[in-house]
Design a protein around this nucleic acid. Structure first.
Length: 264
DNA sequence: CCTGCTACCTGATGGC
DNA sequence: TGCCATCAGGTAGCAG
């Protein structure tokens, strides 16, 4: 995407730009050039020559790169309907149409003068893949919170980027109960949790990149989590470590999966 | 300030 | 077959 000029921007479903008016996104984005693409927590940022295009995929957002409408390539592929793919926003680039699609329409696309104009971005905590994320930093953060570890790990203002899958997985690797209070975690356990977080995210990245996502294929869906997942959505099945059945637990409005046998 | 709950959406699945 | 409840990778906004 780097260096591509946004020839036009179409909003098919204005819910995706809320609370920003769709036409504001369009006029701000049109004619701009993408300088750089980066990630902050779960946000995807397109740095433009003026301002930023910011995407958040929430639960079901996806990006597609489709052939230009009416092109030979589009006809060969049967011109997939925007409605069928639930495309909310479409950016016309030289290399094709970059489409933000989202079945549940919970994802968002905004234009911002700078990332700090997003409350969600400003308040993001430390990136667990960054150098600065050390055992010591994790220990300090944990010590300041009385919440259950599961809620702590999913709090984007503490550590940015961990969601429901990887919080369950990291706690399993660290042999810590999702219900354990953050400030009741011993030094040795902090060390285990830190290692677990970094390992889980690293392995997840491997799964996400091999095979690489097929941006140009609208049928493509992410598969391969099964290879790395040990407890997530595996209630009733044996724990790969101790053999006892994995349990599902409601915490903070989300499902938490863990092994009561070896997670304390 | 901190925490927990609910709304926001659509679609898949399973029980009756 | 249809109807209803529940669940799904997340966060903003609000009440207490």
């Amino acid at each position: 995407m780097r260096g591509q000029r946004i020839r036009s921007c179409r909003v098919m479903h204005a819910i995706a730009t809320r609370p920003q008016p769709a036409d504001e996104l369009c006029w701000r984005a049109t004619g701009r050039t993408i300088r750089e693409v980066r990630r902050r927590g779960k946000y995807l940022l397109f740095e433009l020559d003026q301002g930023y295009l910011v995407m958040h995929f929430r639960l079901s957002g996806q990006l597609f790169l489709l052939p230009h409408q009416g092109s030979v390539a589009a006809r060969r592929e049967g011109e997939p309907e925007a409605s069928a793919l639930h495309i909310d926003v479409e950016l016309e680039l030289a290399c094709g149409r970059l489409c933000f699609a989202d079945i549940r329409h919970l994802g968002r696309v905004h234009w911002l003068a700078r990332p700090a104009d997003s409350r969600g971005i400003t308040r993001l905590g430390i990136d667990p893949l960054a150098r600065e994320f050390t055992r010591g930093v994790l220990g300090t953060l944990l010590g300041r919170s009385k919440r259950p570890l599961k809620n702590f790990l999913m709090d984007q203002e503490k550590i940015a980027g961990i969601g429901n899958i990887y919080s369950s997985e990291a706690l399993w690797y660290a042999r810590l109960s999702p219900r354990r209070r953050a400030n009741r975690v011993a030094t040795q356990e902090v060390r285990r949790l830190h290692k677990a977080i970094v390992n889980v995210l690293g392995r997840a990245l491997e799964c996400c990149l091999h095979p690489a996502p097929a941006l140009r294929n609208p049928q493509w869906a992410f598969e391969g989590l099964e290879k790395m997942v040990r407890v997530y959505q595996r209630a009733g099945r044996p724990c790969p470590r101790c053999g006892r059945p994995i349990k599902r637990l409601g915490l903070g409005g989300r499902s938490s999966f863990f092994c009561p046998g070896c997670q304390r």
